[in-house]
Computed example of a mutant assay.
Amino acid sequence: MSLLIGDTAPDFEAETTEGRIRFHPWAGADWVIFFSHPADFTPVCTTELGYTAKLRDEFARRGAKALVISVDTLEHHHSWSNDIAETQGAAVNFPIIADTDRKVATLYSMIHPNADAKLTVRAVYVIDPQKKIRASIVYPPSTGRNFEEVLRLLDSLQLTDGYKVATPVNWKDGEDVIIAPSLQDPAEIARLFPKGYKALKSYLRVTPQPDKA
C-alpha cells in the first residue's frame, strides 16, 4: 500500500555511506527530504546528488536534511561519490542508503513494477519532525527533479504550520499568501494579520506573508 500524506513515515534500519542508521532517531527533530535514485553511475542521478550537496546550507536554514537511497551497494555509493564530486563540484554530504535487498524501497513504495521492477523511481518524501509524511512527489527515472520546487514546498509547509494561511499558485517565499477560509471572525483576522488584506472574494483574501517584516 502506498504511503499517504499524514501517515507516519515507517522506521527502518539501514547501512549508509555514513554508517548504520535507524531512521527515526537519525531524523531527530529535523525535517527530512528522503528521496530515491534509480541507480548509481547514471547521468541524471549524478547531477541531482551534486545539486543536493550544494543545498546543504539551504536545508539547514530550514531545519532539514537530506537522505538518499538506491538499490546499489555501499562500495558503489562510495565510488560514485567520487564521480559526483569531480563532475558537479560538490562532495556528497548526506547519507546514501545501500538498499540491495529493496526492503526500504518497498516499504516506501519506491519500486513501481510497471516502470521498472529492478529500479526505484525518483520518489521524494517530505517528512516533518513528528515523522509524518507531509508531501510526496514521484518522477519517472528519466526525468530529473526540480529541487527549487522541493525547497518551495518545504517553505510552504513550514509557513502554513505556523500561520493560518495557504500559499497560492507559483508562490515563493516572501510573496503574498491566502488567509485560511476557516477564519471568519474580523477581530481575529485583524489580530493575526495586522498588515491588512485584500478580499478578492469572500473566500479569497490575500495578505502579505505574515512572518516577513
Rank of each mutant, 00 (worst) to 15 (best):
A39N: 11
I69P: 00
P95I: 10
V71S: 13
P38K: 05
D72Q: 10
D99W: 00
C45N: 08
F94W: 00
H37R: 08
A98W: 07
V71P: 04
A91P: 02
N82Q: 14
E48W: 03
P43D: 11
A64M: 05
A53S: 15
T87S: 08
T52Y: 03
V44H: 01
G50T: 11
V68C: 15
D83C: 09
N82L: 13
C45P: 08
L74H: 06
T52F: 12
F59C: 04
N82W: 05
A60H: 12
H77G: 06
A39Q: 13
T73C: 02
I69S: 01
T42Q: 04
S36Q: 04
T100Y: 00
I69R: 00
D72K: 03
K103C: 04
T100W: 00
L74A: 03
I84E: 01
A66F: 11
L49F: 05
A39I: 02
A91R: 14
R102S: 12
K65L: 08
H77R: 02
A39S: 14
D40T: 07
P95Y: 02
D72N: 15
A91I: 03
T47G: 05
H78I: 11
S81Y: 06
L49I: 14
D40S: 13
W80L: 06
E86M: 13
E58V: 12
K65P: 00
I69A: 06
P95A: 05
A66Q: 04
G50W: 09
T42K: 03
D40C: 10
A53V: 10
T42Y: 07
S81M: 14
I97N: 02
A39T: 08
T73V: 06
